[in-house]
């Protein structure tokens, strides 16, 4: 067994990538669900109660550790694989016509992923660190108000633009990652491949687009809020 322990080779390592990838994809749905509550025009009431539920729920808090683990595994595994891949071709080609045989984003998962990692750190700094440690009190109401805090964060246009760019990166990352994960997990059948492909495309466009709408809306609402 030691000779072919599942993690001792690229196939096993890719399996981890695929599994964590699918896990993170499912996390995005939950995340998006909560976020979409912020679009309800009730001054954040729905959103804040959803956020509180998430923050206080024991299972969710436990799952959060799982989520962190998922991210870390996905990222570390990717780094290990990428380093290994570099070793597999120590001398690069002088001329590569990659566009002739594959999509640019399928070849750029590492770069897209790195962008997403940078975004993730920024994003955690924006919300997670503050909601957990430094506080998210609404200065007007003196109550914890994540909704307000989001509007507050997105008041700067550059933050909104970064979030939108991050969502574009996410879209392309998913566009390849979604179907790639299925292949890596061996879930491939001529009858269902078109379905997986369509779900993947719809997901990769829809989810990041909806994510991207939120900062835009909140940016506009904040401007409205303070002028009001």
């Amino acid at each position: 067994m030691s000779q072919h322990g599942i993690l001792k080779n690229v196939v096993g390592k890719k399996l981890i990538m695929g599994l964590t990838g699918i896990f993170l994809v499912s996390f995005l749905v939950v995340h998006l669900g909560i976020n979409l509550c912020a679009l309800v025009p009730d001054n954040g009431e729905t959103f804040n109660s959803a956020a509180e539920f998430m923050a206080d729920n024991f299972f969710i808090r436990t799952a959060e550790w799982g989520l962190f683990l998922g991210f870390i595994l996905h990222i570390v595994d990717a780094a290990v694989l990428t380093l290994g891949n570099r070793k597999s071709r120590p001398i690069a080609y002088a001329k590569v016509d990659g566009a002739a045989n594959s999509s640019w984003y399928s070849r750029s998962m590492g770069i897209l992923g790195t962008l997403l990692l940078i975004f993730l750190i920024l994003h955690l700094g924006h919300f997670w660190v503050k909601s957990r440690f430094t506080g998210i009190e609404n200065p007007f109401t003196q109550k914890d108000d994540l909704y307000f805090y989001m509007m507050y964060t997105f008041q700067d246009l550059w933050v909104v633009i970064i979030y939108i760019l991050a969502q574009i990166s996410l879209g392309y990352h998913l566009l390849h990652g979604f179907k790639s994960a299925f292949r890596t997990l061996g879930l491939n059948h001529p009858k269902y491949n078109p379905l997986i492909s369509i779900i993947g495309i719809v997901y990769s466009i829809l989810v990041p687009t909806l994510f991207a709408i939120i900062p835009v809306v909140l940016h506009l609402r904040y401007n409205h809020y303070i002028t009001f």
Partner: peptide, 25 residues
């Protein structure tokens, strides 16, 4: 499959990121 994958690993080939370049070429 276990033996062939183990040998593939030992030879130092990289991992598959499903770009599809192999199939296309």
């Amino acid at each position: 499959v276990l033996k062939m994958v183990a040998q593939m690993e030992q030879e130092g080939f990289g991992s598959c990121t499903n770009t599809g370049a192999c199939e296309a070429e």
